[in-house]
Design a protein around this nucleic acid. Structure first.
Lengths: 299, 299
DNA sequence: CTGACCGGTGCCGAAAATGCACCGCTTTTG
DNA sequence: CAAAAGCGGTGCATTTTCGGCACCGGTCAG
């Protein structure tokens, strides 16, 4: 690195014991080297070489300078190696803002899978509603966002989108469980619970009802899909969730059924970044891995 | 020092958020600065800035570079101070981050005393809350920190610790003024004012109450102990402060009483530096002087 | 004394850095 | 939708810096 050039010359002079010999070693003229030394001493504020009749020798200040140089050198090597690791994606950090639906199954599996091949990469996962996720992107708090039906799409650059049909979650003994697809209005006829209006599922359902006379009438509102999932086990109500956030084993006593898409158009689960931004290597690579996984999920 | 020039420019760009603004700040043209950045990135082997539509922003490699720069800067200052000491001139600079309680009496007295015997030594005093003080240490903005109850990050090295019993400050006509030691719960029964939660005194009181049903209920919250001290003169409320920050002459009309230590354990006033760092001569010597003074204070 | 070797300096040309004008692009503004 | 304003980046002429050459004064070995 060029900014350490003076130190390299100083080191050469120290080793050679004279400016002329060092100049010879470094393939420059003695006068040029001499001036470098003098200029350095002047701006450092003190001599670093003792002038002897037969050459020069480091004085105590010079010893300190050399010590400083070595520490500087080693720290720079450390930085460069860290950066190299960063670029080689053996190391790095990925920050991602995502909807709650991704938190139980999809994202843990994705990250674990990625980390099996890139154990040096670390992650920040922030659960955000769709407004906050985009805010995180534009304030650089997150590199990536994986959100259902984001709001603005202005600062938001879509990397991948997969449709998600909203499902209704209920106990197996619920009357609607016998149907393979349920109508939205039938859901509203039964007690149901809904996320708060900050969440896309609520927004989608209300948008679908906007042209009709029906309105939602939730017995419980919550900002936690996890809570709502588990509440269904305790009271025979209907909850809503998208398939990527669902995994209902037989022993859970719960089932999910898709809502007819003519009642409720599928929402888009969108992976995005801040528009125009060049992502860190690790984040870009992880985004590619997720795109592939979402592709498989959509099929 | 000229060899750190590139870093100074990089720092300017980081702060300004754009090359053009930084060029303006540094009194060169944008093209020259632009080329400097590009040349640096080329010889460093990796980009340092993300290019955004509205400017540039440090990327992770750039963060590492800046960290490297700060450490180099501080180490160079150390070397120069050691050299100055070598040359027999007692010069140097001490930068210290401290809690507000130190600002009225202890630190001015300490510094004035030190400067009587070392008039060539200059000082920077930065009042910081306990989180910011440690941040200053690790970013090399301060050599020393003198803080009540620091958060104890890993890279904080304790040089000296003295216990400080929290005192309650009130007017002489306050009902509690007749007691030589007051119970914390009695304080809460009277109108009281408190520092914001960034400060250790607030944190200690809330921690002491955490196992109880009592809560603080301050009529005023402030980040200025000086303001709070003087507010007590205007309304008959209780304020809190540690003894090192207190000196209440009779004519002030105020008195202070210790809070029972079984209610509120004493906090530790801690002098510390960044772990593993070799301080400049001036700072190390001043630290020793302060250690002696704190020792006397504790007795 | 002499020649070899040393650090240091004046001068001049080469090289590097800078300033200026301008490009292509995006965002903001009217 | 067009104009204006900012942004990073680039070609070119100019200025500044740096290196090479010749040379000086001093020390020292033989």
């Amino acid at each position: 690195m060029r900014h350490l050039l003076d130190f390299r010359f100083i080191e050469a002079v120290m080793r050679a014991g004279s400016i002329r010999k060092a100049a010879d070693d470094m393939n420059i003229t003695a006068s040029a080297l001499n001036r470098r030394i003098q200029r350095f001493e002047e701006e450092f504020g003190s001599q670093i070489f003792e002038r002897l009749p037969r050459g020069v020798r480091l004085n105590p200040a010079g010893e300190l300078i050399m010590q400083h140089y070595r520490s500087q050198q080693s720290d720079l090597r450390r930085v460069q190696s860290q950066v190299a690791d960063l670029a080689g994606e053996r190391r790095g950090h990925v920050s991602i803002a995502c909807s709650q639906a991704l938190s139980p199954y999809f994202l843990p599996a994705q990250i674990a899978d990625y980390r099996r091949s890139h154990p040096g990469v670390t992650f920040s996962v922030n659960i955000r509603d769709r407004a906050a996720a985009e805010a995180d992107l534009s304030s650089f708090r997150s590199d990536l966002a994986l959100v259902l039906e984001p709001i603005h799409l202005v600062d938001f650059e879509v990397l991948m989108a997969v449709p998600q049909v909203v499902h209704v979650v209920m106990r197996v003994d619920h009357p609607l469980a016998s149907q393979s697809e349920v109508r939205l209005r039938n859901c509203l006829d039964h007690p149901h619970i809904l996320p708060t209006s900050a969440y896309a599922v609520r927004h989608m359902i209300e948008a679908a009802l906007s042209g009709t006379s029906r309105r939602v009438n939730p017995v419980i509102e919550s900002d936690s899909f996890d809570f709502m999932r588990h509440y269904v086990e305790n009271e025979n109500v209907l909850a809503f969730q998208i398939p990527i956030g669902l995994r209902l084993p037989r022993e859970s006593g719960l089932v999910s059924r898709p809502i007819a898409t003519r009642d409720l158009p599928p929402g888009s689960l969108i992976l995005g970044q801040m528009r125009g931004r060049t992502l860190p290597i690790a984040s870009a690579k992880f985004a590619n891995a997720m795109i592939a996984a979402l592709q498989r999920f959509a099929d």
